[in-house]
Nucleic acid binder design. Structure first.
Lengths: 113, 113
DNA sequence: ACAATCGGAAACCATTTGGTTACGATGATT
DNA sequence: AATCATCGTAACCAAATGGTTTCCGATTGT
């Protein structure tokens, strides 16, 4: 039912927030912004071992932030940023709390110039 | 120097992303969006113990997402959403990846109607 | 002065996280 | 066919996380 869907949406959002919480995973996303890369290429950018990067990739894939297609022995990883819209939507509820301070500052400047 | 500042900015961002990663902490932020509340009031919304909520609040305070002023025996907690601008700024680098798909869909519709 | 309330800190515990090394499956190369 | 490269998974480990109960300090009210 709808209830189940709602829970699932919330769970998905939790997974996305967890996925982007780690700085290594955010670096991976940034890397894939320029071009798709294989797992080995991604791992070469980090001091940690390849399986460690592989684990991070698994988490990113579970959040659907990274999609990968096997191509021969390699695996082409590419960015899928659409799930980040959930984060964007979440932020919208808080945007007013920083824009309003800008607005009040602006009106202050307007009045006192 | 500038290098140190950069590191500190990155660390701050890490702390913010960690802070909002937990669903309980996001619920706390949502609660404080309506009005400032005491620690006890916040805790009453959760099934967990008050010290558990207190720990979450400590993390949120360390990210400067919650500020609290002691008032008598109680502690007034209020939302400070400004640090979330860092998340917003981070998202801007990915926005194109979901808007471009909307744009391409729009141009497709334009061409084929 | 004393009791009660509020909230933070400490000590403790189970689970999760983030890393390692070792191994195995699969596809390419020779 | 045999070997090599790539990548995922398993087993393991230390540290962090998220929760508990207990206790303590500060403030308020009687």
């Amino acid at each position: 039912m709808i209830g189940n869907r709602m829970v699932s949406v919330k769970r998905k959002r939790d997974i996305i927030f967890r996925a982007i919480a780690d700085p290594t995973r955010r670096r991976i996303l940034a890397l894939l912004r320029t071009r798709h890369q294989t797992v080995g290429e991604i791992a070469s950018n980090f001091a940690m071992s390849r399986p460690a990067v592989s684990k991070h990739l698994r988490l990113l894939r579970s959040a659907h932030l990274v999609v990968s297609r096997r191509q021969g022995t390699t695996s082409r990883c590419s960015l899928n940023a659409r799930p980040l819209r959930a984060v964007n939507d979440w932020l919208r509820d808080y945007e007013i709390f920083w824009t309003e301070s800008l607005e009040s500052l602006k009106s202050y400047v307007e009045k006192n110039r």
